[in-house]
Amino acid sequence: MVILHTCLNVSDVDQSIEWYTENLDFEESWGFETPDGETVNRYVADDNGVELQLSDTEGQTPSEEGELWDHLAVKVDDVDAAFEEIDDHGVIKEPGDQPAAGARTAFVRDPDGHAIELIEPLED
């Protein structure tokens, strides 16, 4: 497994993109919106290609520790197989295709309740 990104909930995605690119020399890499258009996800990457997902949901301003950090994304070869094998401590979302993100994903909780996203890229 490979860590792909960490998702941070932000109140203003444009401001966050500007901060990470100007202050930490990250490069904006890509982005997508949820089908309902309520959440904008944009990514910045460091020189090694490690990404931060900056997630801005309309009407939500993260202000507490539990709202600021969202999830850790891990690349797997087969989401369905990994989902079945992992000793999760709570299923958040069962495997499903996310065409806007170009991936099949599932979400589980680790022993301390952190959200872990399992990602398998969809075939082109």
Rank of each mutant, 00 (worst) to 15 (best):
D87W: 00
G66A: 10
S29K: 14
V44D: 05
D112G: 04
G49M: 14
E51Q: 14
T6L: 13
L72N: 08
S16V: 02
L24M: 06
D46S: 03
W19G: 00
E58G: 03
K75N: 06
L122I: 04
E51D: 11
P62E: 05
F107V: 12
P121N: 00
L118A: 04
D80I: 01
E94R: 13
S55C: 15
D36V: 09
E65A: 06
A106R: 07
A100G: 10
G113V: 12
L4Y: 00
D77H: 04
V13D: 07
N48F: 11
G37Y: 00
D56W: 13
S29H: 07
G59A: 14
A115M: 12
F83E: 02
H89E: 11
P111R: 03
I116V: 09
Y43T: 05
D110N: 13
V10W: 07
A100W: 15
F83D: 09
P35W: 00
D78C: 11
E51N: 02
N48S: 12
E123Q: 05
V40D: 05
V44L: 09
L52A: 08
G66D: 13
E123R: 08
V44Y: 02
W30D: 13
E18T: 14
E85G: 09
E51R: 12
F32R: 04
K93V: 10
H5W: 08
Q53T: 05
S16Y: 01
G49R: 10
W19D: 01
Q53M: 15
T61A: 13
V79E: 11
A103Q: 13
N9K: 11
T105N: 07
D14F: 04
I119Y: 01
V74I: 15
S55V: 07
T6C: 09
T39Y: 02
K93Q: 14
Y20L: 08
E51A: 14
E27D: 14
G102Q: 03
K75C: 03
I119A: 00
E27W: 01
L8N: 02
G113E: 12
A103V: 14
E67M: 08
A101H: 08
I86W: 11
A103F: 01
A81P: 08
E65Y: 08
G90F: 03
I116M: 00
D56A: 10
W19F: 15
D78K: 08
A101W: 11
C7P: 01
G66W: 09
V13G: 04
F32K: 04
D70I: 00
I116E: 00
H71D: 07
Q60C: 05
